[in-house]
Simulated assay, not measured.
Amino acid sequence: MFRALTLALMLCPLPLLAQQAVPVPDLAEPQVAEPPMTLERLAGIITALDADAVAQGPTLQFNIDGIPVMIVADAGADRMRAMVPIASAEGLSAQDLLRMMQANFDTALDARYAVANGRLWGVFIHPLSPLERDQLISALVQTVNVARSYGQTYSGGAQVFGGGDSNGIYRELFEELKKKGEAL
């Protein structure tokens, strides 16, 4: 069989092969990459999203849709963390913790549930310099959504199966935040 396939490929006219080829993109056009994310660029994006954002050292505090968000960034370690407080961690049951771990695997997406300093958080953790603007905005929306959906769907909101309204709500918030930071 292999021999017959090889022979058929050798005998096949080249113009026929060329007609069936997948077009190759023109690699001569340079791809415009975003500049690396820096503390200054991060602050500029956040300020575009919330003009009342407060910067204090490596920490930015602001609101998205009425939800308090805090970002802590460290340029030296090339890391950033976006956090949304959800509730006290006191009294979380084994069932609550299990459900959050399940959500961290499938529905929380890039955001995660975490416990630190006696508090339950929605978090997004990422290297700072390769972070792109749209990734940041999507991550912020997902982090806000895991806080909103705690105790219900435990969802980051970006991937929703079925014909419900959640995906449209996520898309509207993403587009709204993206427009605010358009010039960045």
Rank of each mutant, 00 (worst) to 15 (best):
R81N: 00
L136H: 04
M1K: 10
H126D: 01
L97Y: 10
S149F: 08
D26I: 01
I71G: 00
K180E: 08
G122Q: 00
F105Y: 13
V24Y: 09
D74P: 06
Q102D: 08
E175S: 15
L11N: 07
M10S: 09
L14M: 07
R3D: 13
V146W: 02
A75T: 11
S93T: 15
W121R: 02
A111Q: 10
V72W: 13
M70H: 08
T38H: 03
P85E: 12
A4C: 14
D74T: 01
L98N: 06
N63E: 15
L27Y: 09
L39I: 07
A89L: 10
M100G: 06
T38R: 03
L140R: 01
G164D: 09
Q102L: 12
F2Q: 15
P85K: 13
R112G: 03
P85S: 12
P36Y: 13
S166W: 08
M101E: 13
T153F: 10
L128F: 09
V123G: 02
A89D: 05
K178F: 12
T107C: 04
I137T: 15
S88W: 03
L27A: 10
E29V: 11
L7T: 14
L98G: 12
A87K: 05
L11Q: 14
R148K: 12
N117A: 14
A87N: 10
V144W: 03
A21M: 14
I45C: 05
N167S: 15
F2R: 15
P58S: 05
F161D: 13
M100A: 10
